[in-house]
Design a protein around this nucleic acid. Sequence first.
DNA 1: CATGAATGAGATTTCATTCAT
DNA 2: CATGAATGAAATCTCATTCAT
Lengths: 224, 224, 224, 224
Amino acid sequence: MLSTSRTREAKLHRHDQILAAAFEEFSAKGYAEARLEDVAQRAGIAKGTIYLYFKNKELLFRAVLRGLIRHAFEELEIFVQTFSGTAEELVRQVLARQYTNVVKNSKARLMLRLLIAESHKFPQLADVYLREVVGPGVAAMRTLIERGIASSEFRESKIAAFPQVLVGPAVLAVVWTLIVGERQPLDLDRYMEAHLELVLHGLRGESQRAPCSTEIFLSAREKQ
Amino acid sequence: MLSTSRTREAKLHRHDQILAAAFEEFSAKGYAEARLEDVAQRAGIAKGTIYLYFKNKELLFRAVLRGLIRHAFEELEIFVQTFSGTAEELVRQVLARQYTNVVKNSKARLMLRLLIAESHKFPQLADVYLREVVGPGVAAMRTLIERGIASSEFRESKIAAFPQVLVGPAVLAVVWTLIVGERQPLDLDRYMEAHLELVLHGLRGESQRAPCSTEIFLSAREKQ
Amino acid sequence: MLSTSRTREAKLHRHDQILAAAFEEFSAKGYAEARLEDVAQRAGIAKGTIYLYFKNKELLFRAVLRGLIRHAFEELEIFVQTFSGTAEELVRQVLARQYTNVVKNSKARLMLRLLIAESHKFPQLADVYLREVVGPGVAAMRTLIERGIASSEFRESKIAAFPQVLVGPAVLAVVWTLIVGERQPLDLDRYMEAHLELVLHGLRGESQRAPCSTEIFLSAREKQ
Amino acid sequence: MLSTSRTREAKLHRHDQILAAAFEEFSAKGYAEARLEDVAQRAGIAKGTIYLYFKNKELLFRAVLRGLIRHAFEELEIFVQTFSGTAEELVRQVLARQYTNVVKNSKARLMLRLLIAESHKFPQLADVYLREVVGPGVAAMRTLIERGIASSEFRESKIAAFPQVLVGPAVLAVVWTLIVGERQPLDLDRYMEAHLELVLHGLRGESQRAPCSTEIFLSAREKQ
DNA sequence: CATGAATGAGATTTCATTCAT
DNA sequence: CATGAATGAAATCTCATTCAT
């Protein structure tokens, strides 16, 4: 019994050990150029051992990404729904979490690079990502906007139909970091403040800003 | 004479023919998995012919991306500087161009995917991209914001320090399209309107929206 | 334990098996025209296996020649120094060994062909050859001559400054065999006698000869 | 007429131009690694032009070597037969010519390297070499020895059966230069003197030397 | 005659995958 | 379970040779 349990533990350990090593290798070299021998070396095991846990390179790769994707935003929705402050404060907190968890997190950035680079070759990944991350994420952002509208902090706008625009600047920050980050680093804290200012001003209801006669005129022009 | 000219034409044609075929292949398979034999086949030529025009696979790849990157935004700055309408109108037009030229343009999207996927392996590409696209693009966006502030259409804000946040949602649209676009397409026209609304509201000066006593106080605090 | 030892043995075997096959192939075709696939076939293994033991073609080639060169003449010097007969007898024995080991040894001849053909492209080989073969060989020949002079069997002469002239005819025999040996074979035993006669007469001191009645008798006996 | 003749001249010129360029290339790289494009470049012509003069690479190579081999020693026989000095003087002159024309002549050395390296793959070359060089060369050396014996300058010996032994040291000098010449150059003038001393002493008749009583004793030891 | 662009066979090298131990 | 030697398909790149101009 004990030995079996130990074995299972060891196996689980091995399994994750391999996944971790594989993530390092894949994110350093990309899917095609990653060498399973190097994965094995990073994991401190022999090449053949990988095949005891994963049928082949593709399934290892998909397991790596699935492991990273899963549960990414499952708490976000709950967080939004149970938050008890103002909508504005909620936006601040939600975006701050995004920066901490994703934009400033190099592992998350590398995962996103792999996803962008390879998802069209591994359609299952896009499915998982859509279901686990994009769907919940958009839903949470939509809830957030609706709460703000309900509390009259935010105005009604077309933004509610595409809540993801609010996260756009964070995505740009990730892509920026991936492409030119080494040559032209972003000051992410100050960047996030600019992002927040744009989003909060962009969402805020007219009533929050004081009515003025020209306002009507302007917003009319704006619509046209 | 005619034969010379024909030859030169043919040569130029071949060169570009290969670049076009290579772009197709690289953006379909990524750098590592692209096969030069398939590039040749797409171009309707023999394998060896590629090597008459490009020393090796890497240089072909870099030539492909350089060709796509170069001059991408060189006119944007001029467009912004010579535009004679309101700043708001300018923002609308600039973003509309981004959507037409980049977000809705599948070639541009694929180029961006290659850049994200491979730029860390080909640092020269990041250099070119920074110099030719990112730099001019950010500069143009900064000019745009400053014009709006000068004309009092936009308020002063931290956004001016990071003009790229304005384009963030467009980048998200590109990444979205690349990863889950096939399963969950974005209605880009309506998405763009949401983007515009966020940006215009986010930039617009307080004075444009009606003064109110708390507003001034708050925006003062916010700026500090 | 047994399996380890078997494995190590097998590995050593493989290594040498490849070297042997490679020598066959290289000496049949020369460096450039030798095909690693054919080396593998001669060794009865797969193409890729070679790369488990040798990084690339060049290093395999150099390993082949280094293996043949090493220790070629290391015992010669000792043999010369510890020989207790006359200098003339020593010359006879040394040259006889050369013929047995080199001139009549087709493996040695082929090695020499490779060395002549390729050494200018692989300078390290020339270094090894100089250090392992040429240096010790010349030193041994020099010792040999000096012994003869010391014992007054040989006269002092310019030959001592270039002891390698004594071996020249053997080198000619090798080259002859390599180029026209198939069409015009040399009778190496009788050729060696001619060589010996030239060398012994060439070295012998004037005082050692002297026309005397027995001379005719002796030289007649000598011929037989 | 004139144009035809000019053309033919041009063609002959081209022909030799190509041969010269090809020799440079072949002797620098060996047969297999020589590139016809580089031959063309050395000759200042286009790659295709070579094929107007030579059917293919192999025939070009053979033509190069045939051109170098032909007539190499055809005058030697005549020189020996018509020489009117002593046999010893003749030996000196013949060997001096060998050093000047062959050993010290880098073109000749390179040709010999090609011959050694490639002749087994191009049997026709060995034929030509045997007929044009080796045959006449050996014949001339034999004549030379016979003249010396006839004039009692040289004694009868087994050397006459293998006259090529006399040239051996020169062959060694060539091989030495080809393999280790760059690292350990030979002083060819002094080397040749050693060679001459060996050969002249080796050939010289007993009567030419000096009587000594110990001869009997020594030659007895010699046999043991 | 001369050119040089184009071809495609062929060589080296890599690496995912298998399997005997 | 774990190993790592062995395999061989596949990819890059070269270059002798052809041929339209």
